[in-house]
Design a protein around this nucleic acid. Structure first.
Length: 922
RNA sequence: GGGCCUGUAGCUCAGUUGGUUAGAGCACCGCCUUGAUAAGGCGGGGGUCAAUGGUUCGAGUCCAUUCAGGCCCA
């Protein structure tokens, strides 16, 4: 033991004669410092432009960027999206395509306007727009910096913006096409209305949140006209959670097939009354209202009630009794209060039964004079529930009230509850383009495949598209109104507007007077322009026209769109619809969707959650690239299955860091072992490769092929796994470990050493290329240390060379690995028993079965000793079924240079060296 | 409530048309190394494949139901 210690402490007199790895490539990545420097270098040399120039003339691959909203910082979901796109663009490029990437931003819309309006009230439309643009541009810059910092390549100095006059003009031209194809109509209709933001909302702008509403049971006395005997003196009973809509009640709907009981009811106060209640809800009705059935007078189907009328509880009119399939028996009474101006089903039912669209509420949610109750005029509808309940009580119509917690639609930005309110809106007749859109869906390749069903279902069931918004920050709906109020919806006029907008931007719509516009588009004096703007989904949905058709380096349809799964209903759909209108075909050939970023418990994480929770973990991309570096964010993206929900946590970054360190250190040791190696002069001939060299080069060939295929299939995770395995197992645990001896100890120009360096050079070259899309910074850095003056991003993936595929070597190594496991287990046992330390201190007696392990390598002891990293190995063949190994402490002296314990040590001119080392130092 | 989807070791993921003892990397534990050293090697523990029921000689894999989660809608 003491001898061993002495050996350790003694400095190695031959260290200077060894070829230990030498490289300046730092072990510590210091990504947060180095990445910005590399970024600056790339920008200074115009790397993106260089790549474009180099690829010009190659087959094109167009990934069309879906524009993120120019609002807020880049959070991890956005980073995931953009990095996935970048992985596609970079890998397609290195696969030989010309893949230009023009990023874009969605600039208009309520969220931005809302922020501006919230800050200061009473702004003129022109001022709101000025501030909104300023706000959008501010966030475009912030986001652009983040995307660039993440190593995403693209034409960042010339992105597309939906607020560019040219883009805006194209939106209006698409509108003209809609008009031309008779797809636009105007109609008063209840729409989702945000009184907080003062606008109608798109379906996508609504979020569901918990809300407690007053739920009430209200009796409507049946009007005596034409009343069957059984119903004399009876009341229908409705249940509603929106008492404020009762002034607009015009009907009561029953399900045609439900059974209803007409009966005599009493409550604990001995109040008696005749009610109609769905049979299946009698118990619930009794428990909620206290009224239980005393005498059943009749049972009737819902359809038998049609045509009756009920007296409105507090207004001088009757409500129609109708049937509706939307009536449920889940809760309430099986009788539904119908206010056609305040609900989608109500509207539909009202239209079918000849009711008017009564909606006595203004844009701020206050009752208008139409409400019919002077006390309520000017009152906010959500302040009116109590007065109405009081009124119902006074009239004896209120049977019960309770607090009801439910999911209620809220405005996604102002967070205020949504109401349904009927206003004049413009719509696209979806029915006329639905068929073609559905056909086109099946021409597109959806990844994952279920995306097809998802968008198909969405398109199949979507109602007409409300495209008008009562907002300011958007592209104006190019319609005018005659002095008498009749609208001018004309493709020709719209195109004139577009031509002017193209020159001066849409601000002109708001800056010029009605008279000026009338003159510009050739309409009679007295014509006024409309105040509505277009739904922002129209904006982004036009990008295939406004971007792909306009940019000379792009083309339509795009080869690929990549967005999160919510865009099946969002951008994928709006783009599809408008592309069907504009060109009669889908705007994309294939579509990839990715999941949302979720935390480790599988819950959704979003930026707005953070606002509510001060302790929430940071979710913005800058936190992570400033703490870990962009390459780690990129490595995280490549390590997850993006088609599902994408797990995300600080811990996951630790995990990615471990993988990164392995990759980086592998690159470092490879580079270090290439010190003094000139690939031009020193490369070995292929016939000089030893078994391990042939094996690792065959593995590399395999890796190249599989990575190319995985990249081509957008399976970045597979690339990540393959490269990791290759570096951790094939290289680090085996090849590098095995060849250390020859690299360090053989003579500088020894054939085995040169062969190995030749292999290592090949490997390093390939790894840099294969890693470049993922570790864009690190691969480029290593590429530089490989002696290149230009960026790895200008290169192709390594070309396949089948001559390196070597099944013979692979089969041999597979057998060797089986034996290695046996030997290592035996050595480990000896080590645990403290009989030996390192492998080289052991002498191993290997027993192999007579059959099997027949590869010639099993006759070549030096090769085996090298492969198993042993000083001395002996082999015997006996009649056993499995290999076994016995480990003994080596009786030989340790070579002071290569640390092997060999019999030759002590007999050389240098008494403390083995043969090989003696020769090497000579 | 409806549509689409997901659920395999602590974590991220593989598991081909149902067929031996369910794999990998990371993490964890122990040992070695100090010539990849703020590195590297070796060995090891760890899973009733979400649950239940079914089809089958045989189910992680097929079917049904339930539970949990995501997106979209109501």
């Amino acid at each position: 033991m003491s001898d061993k210690k002495k050996e350790k402490d003694a400095p190695n007199p031959y260290k200077e004669t060894l070829h230990l790895p030498v490289t300046e490539f730092p072990m510590r990545a210091s990504l947060t410092e180095r990445e910005p420097q590399r970024l600056a270098k790339w920008e200074a040399q115009g790397l993106y432009q260089q790549i474009q120039e180099k690829r010009r003339g190659s087959r094109k691959f167009i990934l069309h960027d879906g524009p993120p909203f120019a609002n807020g910082d880049v959070h991890m979901g956005t980073a995931l999206n953009k990095i996935l796109k970048d992985l596609v663009v970079k890998s397609k490029t290195m696969l030989g395509w010309h893949a230009p990437f023009v990023p874009g931003w969605d600039c208009h819309g309520l969220p931005i306007e809302f922020r501006v309006v919230k800050e200061s009230t009473g702004l003129t439309p022109v001022e709101i727009r000025r501030r909104s643009e300023e706000y959008a541009r501010k966030y475009i810059d912030i986001q652009r910096n983040s995307f660039k910092r993440l190593g995403v390549f693209g034409d960042w100095e010339n992105p597309y913006l939906t607020l560019d006059p040219g883009y805006e003009a194209d939106i209006i031209r698409v509108f003209a096409k809609l008009v031309e194809q008779d797809l636009v109509y105007r109609m008063k209709r209840p729409v989702l209305w945000s009184y907080g933001a003062g606008t109608a909302l798109a379906e996508a702008e609504v979020e569901y949140k918990d809300k407690v509403s007053p739920a009430i049971y209200v009796a409507f006395n049946l009007a005596p006209t034409n009343l069957p005997v059984a119903l004399e003196g009876a009341s229908l009973v409705i249940w509603t959670t929106t008492p404020w809509t009762l002034p607009a009640n015009l009907g009561i709907a029953l399900h045609p097939d439900f059974d209803y009981v007409v009966g005599e009811f009493t409550n604990p106060e001995n109040v008696a009354a005749r009610f109609v209640v769905a049979k299946s809800l009698l118990n619930e009705f009794a428990s909620k209202t206290g009224f239980s059935l005393v005498t059943e007078l009749a049972q009737m189907k819902g359809r038998e009630f049609v045509g009756l009328e009920a007296q409105h509880p507090f207004l001088p009119r009757t409500s129609k009794v109708i049937n509706g399939l939307f009536v449920t028996a889940d809760t309430g009474t099986g009788q539904v209060h119908i206010a056609p101006g305040h609900g989608a089903d109500d509207y539909q039912a009202g239209r079918e039964n000849g009711m008017e669209i009564l909606s006595p509420v203004d844009g701020r949610g206050h009752y208008t004079a139409e409400v019919g109750l002077p006390d309520l005029v000017g009152k906010h509808v959500f302040q009116a529930n109590e007065p109405i309940i009081a009124l119902l009580t006074e009239k004896g119509a209120l049977l019960a009230r309770e607090s009801y917690a439910h999911q209620y639609p809220h405005c996604w930005r102002s967070k205020t509850p949504i109401i349904f309110r009927a206003v004049e809106q413009y719509f696209i007749r979806v029915e006329q383009i639905r068929g073609k859109a559905l056909e086109e869906i099946d021409r597109v390749k959806w990844l994952p495949a279920w995306g097809r069903n998802r968008i198909h279902g969405t398109v199949e069931s979507r109602p007409d598209w409300c495209i008008s918004r009562q907002r300011t920050w958007g592209v104006p709906l190019p319609v005018f109104y005659h002095a008498d109020g009749t609208p001018v919806v004309s493709a020709e006029v719209a195109r004139k507007v577009a031509d002017i907008i193209e020159q001066v931007g849409t601000n002109a719509w708001f800056e010029k007077t009605d008279a000026e516009w009338a003159e510009l588009v050739g309409l009679p004096e007295g014509t006024v322009k409309g105040n509505d703007t277009l739904d922002v989904w129209i904006d982004s949905g036009c990008s295939h026209v406004a971007v792909m058709d306009r940019h000379p380096e792009l083309h339509s349809p795009a080869d690929l769109y990549i967005e999160a799964t919510d865009q099946h209903r969002g951008w994928f759909q709006s783009s599809l619809m408008l592309s069907v209108v504009a060109r009669g075909a889908a705007p994309y050939k294939s579509v990839i969707t990715h999941g949302f970023v979720v935390d480790t418990s599988g819950k959704k994480v979003s930026k707005s959650d953070q606002g509510n929770d001060k302790n929430a973990k940071p979710m913005t991309a800058d936190h992570f690239y400033n703490k870990y570096g962009a390459d780690l964010v990129r490595l995280w993206v490549s390590s997850v299955d993006y088609q599902n929900e994408v797990p995300f946590s600080e811990e996951l970054f630790q995990q990615a860091s471990e993988s990164y360190r392995r990759l980086r250190n592998t690159l470092r040791v490879l580079l270090g072992n290439l010190d003094g190696f000139d690939a031009e002069k020193d490369a070995a001939d292929p016939d000089q490769f030893t078994l391990v060299d042939r094996w690792i080069l065959s593995q590399l060939e395999n890796l190249k092929q599989e990575c190319r295929e995985a990249y081509d299939a957008y399976d970045f995770r597979k690339v990540f796994v393959l490269i990791n395995q290759f570096c951790a197992v094939d290289l680090s645990a085996l090849y590098v470990d095995i060849t250390k001896d020859r690299l360090y100890c053989d003579a500088t120009s020894g054939l085995r050493r040169r062969a190995t360096q030749t292999a290592i050079h090949r490997i390093t070259d390939a790894l840099c290329r294969l890693l470049a899309p993922i570790l864009s910074f690190t691969a480029d850095e290593a590429w530089e240390y490989l002696g290149h003056q230009t960026s790895v991003h200008l290169e192709d993936f390594p070309e396949l060379d089948p001559s390196y595929v070597n099944p013979e070597a692979t089969a041999a190594v597979q057998e060797l690995l089986k034996v290695r496991a046996v030997i290592q287990q035996a050595i480990e046992k000896a080590r645990q028993e403290k009989r030996i330390g390192s492998n080289l201190e052991a002498t191993v007696e290997l027993t192999l079965p007579e059959s099997g392990f027949q590869h010639p390598v099993f006759e070549a002891l030096p090769t085996l000793e090298e492969f198993f990293i042993l000083s001395v190995l002996t082999i015997k063949r006996t009649d056993v079924t499995e290999p076994s190994a016995v480990v003994l402490e080596s009786p030989h002296q340790k070579c002071a240079r290569c640390w092997k314990h060999l019999p030759a040590v002590g007999h050389q001119p240098h008494a403390d060296l083995c043969d090989r080392c003696d020769e090497a130092v000579a």
